[in-house]
């Protein structure tokens, strides 16, 4: 276990009554990595992310995020992460700039930093013409890119992205991943969940979650060799077929 790892998780578990949503998962994520967290719907990805970002109290196990304990120091974790939830979480009755000002404000950016950042994002996303438009009026793909940019407005060392590309067209998805890769190249660790298997190829390490357990972890190349598959899709199907939860549905 590399002490410098930004996420260190050991046998982390979350139970809701009888239901074990996350079952003793262990993993390490190194700094600057893109860590892909793959799994079918209901596999427990969101629950795991919520525990790591301090939104949900774990039932058992250990987890350290950027050196802070998820049990005792969730507020310190929150200062050091970005988070983009599955549900769109910008205020759609505010303009692009108003959203940036709000989220920048609550992460403690001063006016000068905020101004620079706002300019930067507007340049990066080419949304100069839309900066005073309501977020509601933007196309979904743009909203998602904007939500991502705002979630890392405060330059956190780590960002959690929960299915950021859900419902987005392939071209926008590629653009989105360019943004992610760019951030990772800048040293940011990206922890991302998805169920688009082609997106796994962008990740340095992927883990595949089935029924709350991590069934496989490694680089895509390693996994494809191990499961003698041509692409990640086949790897995933091989593993996910074992799912009891999915078969019950």
């Amino acid at each position: 276990m590399n002490p410098d790892n930004i996420i260190k998780v050991e046998k982390l578990t979350k139970r809701f009554g009888e239901f074990v949503a996350v079952d003793q998962i262990s993993m390490d994520v190194g700094r600057g990595q893109i860590f892909g967290f793959l799994g079918a719907n209901g596999a427990g990805k969101t629950t795991a992310i919520k525990m790591l970002s301090g939104l949900l109290q774990p039932t058992a196990g250990k987890a350290m995020v950027n050196g802070f304990d998820v049990y005792t120091e969730p507020e310190k974790i929150k200062r050091n992460i970005g988070y983009m939830s599955q549900r769109f979480s910008l205020y759609d009755d505010l303009t692009v700039v108003e959203n940036m000002k709000f989220y920048g404000g609550i992460y403690g950016l001063n006016n000068k930093e905020l101004k620079i950042k706002t300019e930067e994002i507007i340049q990066l996303l080419h949304i100069g013409d839309f900066k005073d438009k309501l977020v509601r009026s933007l196309p979904l793909g743009w909203k998602q890119k904007l939500a991502f940019s705002i979630s890392i407005l405060h330059n956190p060392p780590l960002v959690f992205l929960d299915e950021p590309t859900g419902g987005v067209d392939p071209i926008t998805r590629r653009e989105f991943w360019e943004l992610i890769t760019q951030s990772a190249n800048g040293g940011m660790t990206v922890f991302v969940t998805t169920h688009y298997m082609d997106e796994a190829e962008y990740c340095d390490i992927v883990s595949i979650m089935v029924d709350g357990r991590i069934e496989a972890m490694g680089s895509t190349r390693e996994l494809k060799t191990k499961y003698k598959a041509e692409d990640m899709e086949s790897v995933f199907v091989t593993l996910a077929r074992k799912s009891k939860r999915a078969n019950q549905e």
């Binding site: 992460i81 549900r87 979480s89």
Partner: peptide
């Protein structure tokens, strides 16, 4: 309802 509360909850705001 909108889910924006989650984004607030995950921020360091007290």
């Amino acid at each position: 309802e909108l889910g924006t509360i989650e984004q607030i909850n995950v921020s360091p705001i007290q």
